[in-house]
Amino acid sequence: MIDPVVLNRLLTADGPVPTHALGITRDDLAALEAAGCRLDDHPQHGLRLLSAGLGCWVDYIEQRHADRLGRRMLVFRETTSTQDVARQAQVADGAVITTDHQTGGRGRLGRRWVAPPGAALLMTAVVRHTESTPVDRLMLAAACAVAEAVESLCEQQVQIRWPNDVLLNGRKLAGILVETANNLAMIGIGLNVSAHPADLNATSLGAESIHVDRLHLLDVLLDRLDFDVRHATDAQLLRCWRARSCLTGQRVTVSVDSRQLTGRVIDLDPAHGLLMQIEQGPITTLPAATTSLIV
């Protein structure tokens, strides 16, 4: 088992900790590594905790979120995607699946989501899916939760690019994917924490000098997500979105069901999608599930 004294000492240390001073045994090291901790064990300087493993505080998170989202945590070292696990494991409302590494991460409309191992917060939150929580509303709630969680950790304002991107300084920080099966919705969130794909217009918290432990971020995010999904009113979500939407007022071209439409983004209907004033046409509602932005 993980020795909480050892873990706490490593977490609070400014630099490497001499292993003999801590009395760290081989078993302690094995336990930390099994929990997903990344350690730098230097023969002269000692032991340094590069990042805490997701397994370290699962009990704590489950306990803290006992009556809400996160009451059941499943941590995977590596898996194809947390969305797949949620589907396969038939987990119940309130479960959260997270992993260090996804080998088949995906985004909306079959796009791929790539992140180096341990560098991103990759999670799927499973919630009951009813008529009062359409997919568009869940995407909105998730985007707002990510934005608010990140903002609570730094001074900067985060932007939301409908339907599923969260941006920091104009670059993609997080992506959201909502899928449904039976009476459950699986809210997938990928958030770049310490690294991000180099070839895309992407960023990470680390790249913006925001250093945060993934478990802390997860804890904060679960609180926001639970509130925004289960308790927030449409008006509250809309206020959050309007203050952060980078598309409102913009002229955009979208593809809907293999048709291309160009127009100006007016607002959002929380339950049904983006409202767009089509050029020489009517105001149209674009559902998130089938719409992709072209420009």
Partner: peptide
């Protein structure tokens, strides 16, 4: 499962 982490 080891240390609360599932290993496939």
């Amino acid at each position: 499962e080891a240390m609360k982490v599932f290993n496939e």
